[in-house]
Computed example of a mutant assay.
Amino acid sequence: MPVLAGAEPFTHSGSGRIGVLLCHGFTGTPQSLRPWGEYLAAREFTVRCPLLPGHGTTWQECNRTGWPDWYACVRDELLALLDSCDSVFVFGMSMGGTLALRLAEEFGEQIRGVVLVNPSVTTLRWDAKLLPVLSKVLPSVAAIGNDIAKPGVTELAYRRTPVRAAASLARLWRIVRTDLPKVTQPLLLFRSAVDHVVEPVNAALIRSGVRSEWLTEVVLENSFHVATLDQDAPLIFQRSVEFAQEQVGSR
């Protein structure tokens, strides 16, 4: 199926010393992370940002996929980075943060550090409990994308939320929450003060659940959910590079 213009995956081969896997969010595309990837590439990081299966095409296509498909995609990209780079980091936004945490749970010390931007591991929405039932009778609901405070900026995301795929994401959340104590890598966590998609409880669950000795939370005061395209994006980009360089230097 044709990929939407602007939704294409991207890669950059840097010096090989530091590699970064970028994971985009649910119903989103690499477009939301491209400025971050370009910032990293300009500093000679090796970067991979795949387009997750079922994304960047139609929401109907997304309903034909589930979290094992999305995870297999980012896992393959991580393995490629581990083969080519001295130190590898995983950065993720929203569901991309969920996938990043799952990778950290599986690969342990092979991942040098994790950067999360408004990651999700649960939701307080009352209708989420009905997802297993709704997914059998309701194809889609209102969109969740494009939550951005900065005027004139648009996220390339689906105009409807695929319910069957959302039910699969909820299953991934439960798995990731259960295994959070397996996350021991240094962790840099960005959280928007105002987020209309992911509630603050998500960051709290992650902070209390992981066993990372190095954990820093940064509150983004000027951005909504898609913070990598929002007003605090320069801060995210700069701090993530400093984090990776510091962790490699302290190794």
Results as ranks from 00 to 15, higher is better:
92 G>I: 04
104 A>K: 09
116 L>N: 00
144 I>A: 07
123 T>P: 02
112 R>G: 07
115 V>K: 00
109 E>I: 00
109 E>A: 12
119 P>C: 14
134 L>C: 05
146 N>P: 02
93 M>F: 02
152 G>P: 06
120 S>G: 14
152 G>Q: 05
137 V>S: 04
80 A>Y: 11
148 I>A: 06
120 S>T: 14
95 M>A: 00
147 D>K: 11
116 L>H: 03
101 L>G: 14
88 V>Y: 06
109 E>P: 08
126 W>N: 08
156 L>H: 13
99 L>N: 09
121 V>N: 15
132 P>G: 02
106 E>W: 04
129 K>Q: 15
151 P>V: 06
124 L>Y: 07
125 R>W: 07
139 P>C: 15
111 I>N: 03
91 F>A: 12
137 V>A: 12
130 L>W: 05
110 Q>H: 12
132 P>N: 08
115 V>M: 03
155 E>L: 01
77 E>F: 03
156 L>N: 13
102 R>C: 10
132 P>V: 03
82 L>N: 02
137 V>W: 11
98 T>A: 14
121 V>R: 14
108 G>I: 08
127 D>C: 07
83 D>R: 14
122 T>K: 14
106 E>N: 10
93 M>L: 01
144 I>M: 05
113 G>W: 00
144 I>P: 00
132 P>A: 05
82 L>C: 01
146 N>C: 06
94 S>V: 07
79 L>K: 09
141 V>G: 14
145 G>I: 02
144 I>T: 11
129 K>S: 15
98 T>Q: 13
92 G>Q: 01
